[in-house]
Amino acid sequence: MKRKSSFWKDFKKQWYYYAMVTPVIILVFIFSYLPLYGLVIAFQKYNPALGFRSAWVGLDNFIFLFKQPNFVRTIWNTLYIAVLKIAGGILVPVTVSLLLNEVRNARMKHMFQTAVYLPYFLSWVLLAGVLMDILGTDGIINQTLKQLGLGSVNFLGNAKIFPWTMIVSDIWKNFGFGTVVYLAALTGIDPGLYEAAVVDGAGRWKQTVYITLPQLTPTIVLMSVLALGGVLNAGFDQIYNLYSPIVFTTGDIIDTYVYRLGITQAQYSIGTAVGLFKSAVSAVLICSSYYLADRFTGYRVF
């Protein structure tokens, strides 16, 4: 009773704040919550002519999906590629930004930063063509290898190597973005901490280990938690443009598989079922990683 009255008291005092946030709430409701209703078609045999009144089939779509002999393989491939991409996508930019932070020459630093940031802006459709030329059996890399007498490597046609080609090229494409984020976090560290460390006799290495890294941890945790939500997205654009039947065993991911399963015949139900499955897994992962981050580093976003 008391709480309610205090809410009304607050509301009277701050009604204009509520008024300002209302349109946003309405928009979010309409565009983010209302469409959730569409998830019912994951449990229906959807026929566009009948719309949401299509026949109800329960879990048939999910059962159909998991009965596919190659679907489980795609889950494993997806996790394998995505987890390594996430791990590399944290390690590489953190290292690079630590190194860049030590560069004295500001011009060099900026030039390097811009250079590594560039590929981030290119689409995979474009980059795939470039990569195919570079990594092909008569590409520049293989020609160099051959001239060094090392024999050629089939980066895109060997099922053992293909996932690594995907992981490395993806990290290469995206680490510029992470670097910018971590550099920004580095500039936010209180210089007083370093001065105190120097007074205590810490060298460059000790400063990095005991001040820079702990100070960076919240940003790293935040980036990891956000990235974990996408653990079932191993990068459709990239893989679809670079794979071929010969590397399906290790390179076929959930998204590419579902694309081939559903897109040719407009199978909305299967597509939605997969989407729902992925969202559910992602939600669990985000929640648990968030809990763990809170538990071990005491870091919370909210």
């Binding site: 190659n70 039947p245 081939r260 399963l261 040719t264 015949q265 199978q267």
Partner: peptide, 23 residues
């Protein structure tokens, strides 16, 4: 037939490719 999309043909295509390339 529609519900399997191209996945069944892809299975064969993958296998044919492995045989043709000698793997």
């Amino acid at each position: 037939v529609n519900s399997y999309g191209s996945t069944l043909d892809d299975l064969l295509l993958e296998g044919f490719t492995l045989i043709i390339t000698g793997q």
